[in-house]
Design a protein around this nucleic acid. Structure first.
Lengths: 342, 342
DNA sequence: CTGTTAGCGCGTTCAC
DNA sequence: GTGAACGCGCTAACAG
């Protein structure tokens, strides 16, 4: 464990002054080719790396992004991992690192990260309508980016998936398939604390579209557990007659199993669409059609605007929605040409 | 965005010197009750928090642990999240934070974290037998803790699950159930890079136990995908007669579905045991018996010894294995009393 | 028990 | 185009 080389060592070996080394690194001043080579060679030779603490102290910038991770989230683990990985990758692409705090630290985590100057900016996910952390970040005055929409977005920067358009696409597809009835197998009542506003956003758009298309829409919350799934499916499908077009927003695999138990093949006996990630949709034995919530896209956009903020680019909008797209796989029939075109 | 208060401000308001403030915080010197109150009141009043960079510069300690996360891992996402969350929680319990780097940064990430003094120690997961990162951490001389065992553990500290005992428990259970044949539905050939030594460790112990118990053991690698699962199950179960006791080490849900497709009920028509996490085992419709790899336990032990290292406690052993336990759920019958006792 | 002082390693004015 | 000098906020010897 030999002593770590400092910029002073580099300067000595290169035969220049310490500040010259600094300018070679930052590029904030023109440096002659010869001097630059001398310095860079010295750095290589020593495998020099700047001390993060010293740099943070002098420059007031840590090159670290604080990320609040909701481990106890009810959304699927794969989706969460996708968010986090993509955020980490984006950060590295901008020469930043990620300091991770768990969401269950609540506001204390935020105050620590900001107050101790552990990071330059914050990223938070799973924002609820009345999220207690929101007023805190606002007051903190730290650059922040929220993934999800709080009720009041004033003074904030948010990125979220466009659930409204997602709902529209899904219900439109059900209508295009000729169904007179649609059923949304929806998030259970207390899902993720019961205060996620994408639920009413999705529902509002779904109902509006159903009205527009003359489709009868029923909204069924599906509690966890096999019995509950079976019970809801019995209510929805037990009456006989043509089953309604199904739109599933959570617990996809549980519902797919439930349909299997009833002897229904998705894409043949019943049309199933889902709001979920591509990965989850494709993991089912019969790949599921529907709208992807695109966690990676959302993360990328979030980080893009976050770095614009850090670079002093004037923010163009407080709220950014990632557009929804419908992907047809095998769990639903293909609509007739004319309907699809309409 | 007013100026952040410093310890100098605290000192001025408390009417003491800056170093006294420092000693109140660190407790490295006895402080009179009166002075302590003065200082703490001033801190409260200013909502003072020490500057992490400045502290790191002066103390040579960052209070940050670097964590290398293998996002692209083939092990299940839930298990990975459990590891990471538990590590984050343990870190906070010791007043440390987690700096996260992705495993695909390779050795570059390690050198950056260590070279720039971004953290005091490293935690790495998914260590393979000839992991290229291992010689690097060794050379770096940074306190490190590996979750998993490299081929050569000299000079390192490792924590892993006790796969040998796990295998023994599983095969013993199959024997206790009266089976003359056992079949391990094993990791596919190139799993996680094909160099994870828990595979041969598990296999060796499984085969030794089978020999000891007079059970005929077959080892079948199960490649991904429904067709592959079905194909292997056909080979294993197609011959008619009593099916062998099944031990599954990966792709549990795919295999459970495959058994379902063959009309076999686990726990009745066939005994199924698994090596997996409790969460995954209990997520199946018929909860699966077997041995849990205990990601949270492994993480906790890892962090415990890591902090002992950081606190200068002499390390008691280079390799620590988390003991295996068998949990009986519904996917396998209960062995007769006398056998279980044996 | 407390205050004084000298760094920690780097960024950034100034002079040259 | 370059170097000397100061400050960032905190810790830890050294005095008293």
């Amino acid at each position: 464990m030999a002593r770590v080389p400092t910029s002073k060592d580099v300067a000595r070996i290169a035969g220049v002054s310490q500040s010259t080394v600094s300018y070679v690194m930052s590029g904030k001043r023109p440096i002659s080719a010869r001097t630059r080579r001398l310095v860079e060679d010295a750095m290589q030779q020593l495998t020099y790396q700047p001390h993060a603490g010293a740099r943070a102290l002098a420059s007031q910038r840590t090159n670290v992004i604080g990320l609040v991770v909701p481990f106890r989230s009810e959304v699927n683990a794969h989706g969460l991992m996708a968010f986090v990985e993509e955020i980490a990758l984006s950060a590295r692409a901008h020469d930043h690192d990620i300091l991770m705090v768990t969401a269950d630290e609540g506001t204390a985590g935020l105050q620590r990260l900001a107050g101790r100057s552990l990071c330059d900016a914050l990223v938070m996910m799973e924002i609820s309508t009345h999220d207690v952390r929101v007023p805190v970040v606002r007051a903190l005055g730290v650059p922040a980016l929220l993934i999800g929409l709080p009720g009041d977005t004033t003074g904030l920067h948010c990125v979220d998936f466009d659930f409204e358009t997602g709902a529209t696409l899904l219900v439109d597809e059900v209508a295009d398939l000729g169904h007179e009835r649609a059923c949304v197998l929806a998030w259970p009542a207390g899902f993720a604390g019961g205060d996620m506003n994408y639920v009413p956003r999705f529902r509002g758009a779904a109902e509006a579209t159903a009205r527009r298309r003359g489709v009868e829409l029923s909204w069924r919350e599906v509690p966890r557990g096999r019995e509950n799934v079976d019970h809801v499916l019995e209510e929805v499908l037990g009456g006989g007659g043509t089953p309604p077009g199904l739109v599933c927003t959570s617990q996809l695999s549980g519902i797919v199993s439930g349909l299997q138990r009833r002897g229904l093949r998705t894409g043949a006996d019943v049309d199933l669409l889902a709001l979920t990630t591509d990965a989850e949709a494709e993991a089912e034995e019969v790949p599921v059609s529907g709208v992807s919530t695109q966690p990676r896209d959302v993360s990328r956009r979030a980080m893009r605007t976050l770095f614009q903020l850090l670079d002093g680019v004037p923010p163009q909008g407080a709220v950014e929605l990632v557009p929804a797209e419908l992907t047809r796989r095998s769990s639903s029939r293909r609509p007739p040409q004319d309907a699809a075109a309409g």
